[in-house]
Write a protein that binds this DNA or RNA. Structure first.
Lengths: 339, 339
DNA sequence: CTGAAAGCGCTAACAT
DNA sequence: ATGTTAGCGCTTTCAG
């Protein structure tokens, strides 16, 4: 089966090991190891013979065996459901940066439940990843600190002031403030905000709401926070709840684009239109928002940059940095037709 | 640091090993191993003591060490860029089924280039995954066969008749035929099809084009295939090329939703509208197509089912199935406003 | 039913 | 500059 590799003592099916290479190059296994890691003290002639044997046998080191003595040059990424298009933008940023740094990024999908996320993270640690990037983890800070004691950790999309790990988050408060400012400049006075119940400290919804509250206060307006669910269904319900009031707000800022898109959809379904019946602004900057048919005003969180930064922080940390870094990425308001 | 685990001889920082557990339970490491894998021949009393020690120490086996003797219960998934929303639907199906089967799914992101994909796959094999799921791999069949000789393999989104691996694909020809039938039933006679140059045998575009050609022939119409690029830019160019003709087609079927969405967008930009100026049908069934503001007719490929099926086939194979399975999933036409 | 010992593929001292 | 020798943490014969 498969392309017949030269001769060699490969008993058809067994993967060649470092011993096979050593035998074929007539050197010791240790020598092969040295060549492969280009460690100090190998003669050109030996390097040559080893490299020949390696390519003739198609030898590839077994990472799990290496990992018993060294690292794996692998970053573990725990990700939320990528069907929320915000996630793939983060992942793309991480993967791109990992490639640049000659690390592999291994992604595992998990849901929003803290216990499941913790288990997913541990499972990657069991597999000897060198470090971990956790996307908006909802577990307790205690759990995070304990995890960070086992492996270098970067939080992506969660604000963290803790010295045990690094973090990259969007400046969520700023994003909400920019949105409110914009809506006010368009003449809106009754501006609602939609969020979800936060399950842990440091998550975006907390800072977005704070930013919103501070901004409306600054403009002398009254806060109007609707707590629902960050889902399509949550967005639909939001429209009905808002427009069902005696005096509905004239604008709403949803804490996530998935919600804002559903708001737009429900609005259309009811025969309404944004911004006339209700101005709508989202948050995330997902690609669908940019479609002309949708044209949703949103807060671009610079997801790719955030992901890349998270990977870079982790790589730096693995390279020896000791002081924690907590970065806030400034978001950008993208004004479109729905406001 | 971290929650003080009882006492135990853990020298603060070192992860507990099977030897630590054995010592604490006053049994041999072999016994611990047996309990953990609930192998034959362990007394209830020993099981009890070992389990206590395990939880007291917070012991977790190191997968790389296990993997020197056994498998890892890990499925490797090589995925294309998930910013194409079709991909996350596949991944979700895979992840869900993996969880059901008590396997971990580890995902690595790669681009459409065959050599890069092969390297990504090999890299997962180096990490001792038990099997591999490759999403629309563009590498040569030779490469695939060689890979399949090293590890059980399932192609997802590539038609394969080869006995060396399993495959799950959408019945792409049927999807294109359904679309053409629908367009004809709406009175269209000049129906264009947009595809991209295929880089390897077995990829969807090949079968979609064949299905399209066969369908128009059946209806006594003339085939009109435009070869471009499956990207937003490709979609925009497609509109200009089509509407720039002396006698433009009245409908176009794009081989991917990403293209169809861009077609809609460019159409709007030119002041046109679907279906009046050009009927548009896509293929994939991405969520954005379902938004009322977009309402794109498309071929739902049942991505989640495809992904789940791929994972199930791989798990079956790992459980010992020897005969190859090649499954074609029937797609479903979802008619919306753009046609 | 239980434990001692060998070894999986690799790297890191420690010789030479 | 090269090779020898111990392990890394785990599983697996094979004795008892």
């Amino acid at each position: 089966m498969a392309a017949a590799r030269t001769t060699g003592p490969r008993p058809a099916g067994r993967r060649p090991t470092i011993v096979d290479v050593a035998r074929r190059a007539a050197v010791s296994p240790a020598a092969v190891s040295k060549v492969l890691r280009n460690a100090y003290g190998v003669s050109p002639s030996m390097r040559e013979r080893v490299e020949t044997a390696v390519s003739e046998l198609g030898y590839r080191p077994m990472v799990s065996a290496q990992s018993m003595r060294t690292g794996t040059r692998t970053l573990g990424v725990s990700s939320l459901d990528p069907r929320n298009p915000f996630i793939p933008m983060l992942l793309d940023g991480v993967a791109r940066e990992a490639r640049r740094s000659a690390f592999s990024a291994l992604i595992t999908l998990t849901d929003a439940d803290g216990a499941t996320q913790l288990e997913a993270a541990r499972s990657m640690v069991d597999r000897q990843v060198d470090g971990l990037i956790l996307i908006t983890p909802t577990m307790s800070e205690d759990d995070l600190v304990q995890l960070a004691a086992e492996v270098p950790l970067v939080l992506l999309g969660r604000h963290g002031a803790h010295p045990a790990f690094d973090s990259v988050a969007s400046d969520d408060a700023l994003g909400a403030a920019l949105t409110v400012d914009h809506l006010v400049s368009r003449g809106h006075r009754r501006i609602a905000f939609h969020t979800q119940p936060t399950r842990s400290g440091g998550l975006p919804e907390e800072f977005r709401e704070a930013g919103y509250r501070e901004a409306v206060r600054r403009h002398g307006l009254q806060a109007d926070v609707v707590v629902g669910e960050w889902s399509a269904e949550g967005g639909r319900r939001l429209v009905d709840e808002l427009l069902g009031r005696p005096t509905p707000p004239t604008a709403v800022h949803a804490g996530a684009d998935m919600v804002a898109l559903a708001v737009l959809d429900r609005l259309l379904e009811r025969g309404g239109r944004a911004p006339d019946d209700l101005a709508v602004a989202g948050c995330d900057g997902v690609p669908a928002a940019a479609l002309r048919a949708v044209s949703l005003t949103t807060v671009d969180q610079q997801a790719a940059e955030m992901g890349g930064l998270a990977a870079r922080l982790l790589v730096e940390r693995l390279a020896g940095r000791a002081e924690p870094r907590h970065v806030l990425v400034p978001p950008q308001l993208v004004v479109r037709a729905t406001t």
